[in-house]
Design a protein around this nucleic acid. Structure first.
Lengths: 149, 149
DNA sequence: ATATATGCAAAGGATTTGCACGGTT
DNA sequence: AACCGTGCAAATCCTTTGCATATAT
């Protein structure tokens, strides 16, 4: 099974309904390689889905995060951003962020090496603090070439 | 030079004045091992510094972050938190966060190993994307033993 | 038919801004 | 004296909630 059908079943599996807004938002984010805010999503769908409310966007993004279909990203900028979470390992990446203009670059350098260290650290933290660890974030902050001027 | 005096000079070096609110906030955060929100700071100083305004807390925290004396932390919870940034390498750490109750644990496991990998990745990213990288964050997310219940 | 999803308007919470006053240099 | 810092109130921005209506199952 693939494409929208897969998502439809996944939603049903969570006892959620397959609706036009949900389909549109999932479609948009799965195609886009960008990290979109709720307003970005709202703005992008405004033309093709007039009448769609910002509230619904927020509620849908939240649902999709809870279902594991999206990642929610929180940099210090006041707004949350969302990225589609492809299932496969190949696309595992982290972020390089420009603190001036907010540009976000996905990078995949050394992820293998990184993953080993992550695993090791995760095990140690689980043992030491009793947490059930579910996720990790790594990010680099700096100034992009354009903003350096 | 050490203690408050050091900070006073550092503020002056930035063309900033040494005032009671700034002294109190710096003092509080340098002593505390916690990760405090603006409201936390405001609440903690309310008794000893009546009349201190929340606005001043925000402005001071912002100043101290720009000066490099504090780290600003943004988890997904809507509010920013601040931690004192001791100059020395010994205290370099990262965060383990409970997604249920928001508890934050500082950990230092494998930081040496980590630092090597960070350095390598940083170099690669600088070369490849032309960023001037100034900082990095690593965090683990999960559920703490208390919240697992 | 029934429970869930949506949209609008209003509420909420964190952070920022305008402005007159007060304190540091 | 000159300029920066502060406090208050109001304004902003992002996100959530209440409620009546529309829709999926």
């Amino acid at each position: 099974m693939r494409g929208p059908g897969k998502w439809q079943h996944r939603l049903h599996g969570h006892g959620a309904r397959w609706t036009a807004p949900r389909s549109a938002i999932l479609e948009l984010l799965s195609r886009s390689s960008k990290h979109m805010s709720a307003k970005d999503v709202y703005g992008s769908l405004n033309r093709t889905h007039p009448g769609l409310g910002l509230t619904t966007v927020y509620r849908t993004l939240d649902l999709l995060v809870r279902m594991g279909l999206l990642n929610k990203l929180s940099f210090g900028s006041g707004e949350s951003r969302y990225e589609f979470r492809s299932g496969d390992e190949e696309t595992h990446h982290h972020h390089l962020i420009c603190m001036q203009c907010g540009k976000i670059i996905d990078y995949t350098d050394f992820v293998d090496e990184e993953l080993k260290l992550i695993k090791k650290t995760e095990d140690a933290l689980t043992r030491k603090h009793g947490f059930k660890i579910t996720d990790h974030n790594i990010e680099f902050l700096g100034i992009c070439p354009e903003c350096k001027g």
